[in-house]
């Protein structure tokens, strides 16, 4: 994929997918594009994903071509927008009952649990976007050596605080719910409170570092 791809999500939204490998400079351009697009009358919300952007329509426009053309132009013009943020450290217990799919990651990657923990705790993970469920953060920067495909059948409920890997991404669930990712550990942190303003603890531009508090082998 060398050019952006725009596709429809029914009549509710469209999806803009940036070309290239997932990286922070591209994500910074997505943030810039989101700021621009959410001022457009057709757009109710501009929602960044991982190097992509969903535009939820205020009202589905009759002339879709005009909106798509404008989106392509705005992308060409979008310069990376660095966002200043905080670094939050999360203590994690890896493996054991709190990491029921660690064995699957070991099997898939061919690495030992200590190598997986070392690779997982090494980076500062920039928050690329929020999504999935209230307060959940999509993080960039995972070491591709611990990539593991999403599960064939989603798990009906994983608990809040579950640290997991899905494809080339990692994240921490903010509340219990279904998930297709592989849970490798657990942490305790309140990521979302609807009474707070803003309700989510983290926002794009912040970063997370995982610290191995305990590794259950």
């Amino acid at each position: 994929m060398t050019v952006p791809v725009i596709t429809l999500l029914g009549t509710t939204a469209l999806l803009f997918d940036a070309p290239g490998e997932t990286d922070l400079p591209t994500q910074q351009r997505i943030w810039a594009l989101a700021l621009e697009a959410e001022t457009w009358p057709e757009v109710r919300e501009a929602v960044p994903g991982m190097n992509n952007l969903m535009l939820a329509f205020a009202r589905a426009p009759r002339n879709l071509d005009a909106l798509e053309a404008r989106l392509h132009q705005a992308w060409e013009a979008a310069a990376p927008l660095p966002l200043d943020g905080r670094l939050i450290e999360l203590p994690v217990t890896y493996g054991g009952d709190g990491g029921p799919h660690m064995a699957d990651v070991i099997t898939h990657t061919g690495l030992g649990i200590d190598d997986i923990v070392a690779l997982h705790t090494a980076p500062e993970y920039p928050v690329f976007a929020l999504g999935s469920h209230p307060g959940y953060c999509y993080l960039g920067g995972m070491d591709l050596r611990i990539s593991t495909p999403r599960r064939k059948v989603p798990v009906l409920s994983i608990p809040g605080g579950a640290v997991s890997i899905g494809g080339a991404q990692t994240g921490v669930s903010a509340s219990s719910g279904p998930s297709g990712w592989n849970t490798i550990g657990t942490t305790a942190m309140v990521f979302f409170d609807p009474a707070r303003d803003p309700p989510a603890l983290l926002r794009p531009g912040d970063a997370i570092r995982f610290r191995a508090e305990r590794v259950i082998r």
Binding site: L9, G10, A13, N52, P149, R150, K152, G166, G167
Partner: peptide
């Protein structure tokens, strides 16, 4: 098909690996 996480809406018809 392995995709990067992206926005979805009610009505989307996803096809898991099964």
């Amino acid at each position: 098909i392995e995709l990067r996480s992206h926005g979805i809406v009610p009505g989307v018809i996803q096809v898991p690996h099964g």
